[in-house]
């Protein structure tokens, strides 16, 4: 498997949170606006690339019995880095994302990729996989965020989309809208996969 293929798999075949049903919590929680989706997605991408690379570097050193704990230490260290950097350079964003920034530690995508991919592949390929899955996740979050922001607040990346007469559909930026939006998007993606003849339904 080449690095390029590992990279491109993240965009469709392993696209989180839709194809890999992992990392749902941030996908629901912080997607009230496209901008937050972008911020969270990039933070996750950063952690994913470096955790994949480090786990892959250490894969022959880490004993099998304590591998999960070791992965968590690697991931947690990277998350603390992101947290501090975000507080220093993007303070308003870090306020909005709140506890969901430290919660990147328990985002199952990262541990999932470390366990399923990085612990048995060379460094460069693992980093590419991290980048692909991370960017795929970022795109998904931006799509969900855009949908919810446009319908729920009438803006996109903070800029108004509709004229003055538009009455925002407030339901979309509240909790039920998040579940509904993600569920329906997942349904659309499944329908598309079925049309292309891919047999794929999450159970």
């Amino acid at each position: 498997m080449t690095a390029v293929r590992a990279l491109t798999h993240g965009f469709w075949r392993n696209l989180p949170p839709f194809r890999l049903v992992l990392g749902l919590c941030p996908a629901l929680a912080i997607t009230t606006a496209a901008e937050y989706g972008l911020g969270m997605g990039l933070a996750v991408t950063f952690v994913l690339v470096f955790s994949n690379a480090l786990v892959s570097l250490l894969r022959r050193v880490i004993p099998d019995e304590v591998r999960i704990a070791s992965f968590i230490v690697v991931i947690a260290t990277l998350v603390v880095l992101v947290e501090l950097a975000m507080k220093a350079y993007f303070y308003p964003l870090s306020r909005t994302l709140g506890i969901y920034v430290p919660l990147i530690v328990v985002n199952c995508i990262i541990l999932g990729r470390a366990e399923a991919f990085a612990s048995r592949n060379p460094v460069l390929v693992s980093a590419a996989d991290g980048l692909g899955v991370g960017l795929g996740y970022t795109i998904s979050l931006i799509v969900v965020g855009s949908l919810r922001e446009i319908l729920g607040a009438g803006t996109w990346f903070g800029r108004p989309v509709f004229g003055d007469g538009f009455e925002p559909f407030g339901f979309m930026v509240k909790a039920p809208g998040a579940f509904l939006c993600l569920g329906l998007l997942l349904g659309v993606m499944n329908a598309w996969s079925r049309r292309r003849g891919e047999i794929f339904v999450q159970t």
């Binding site: 579940f179 569920g183 329906l184 349904g187 659309v188 499944n190």
Partner: peptide, 11 residues
């Protein structure tokens, strides 16, 4: 069929 599984669960 397209909504089976996680999709309908989320809705």
């Amino acid at each position: 069929p397209a909504m089976r599984g996680t999709a309908i669960a989320l809705v």
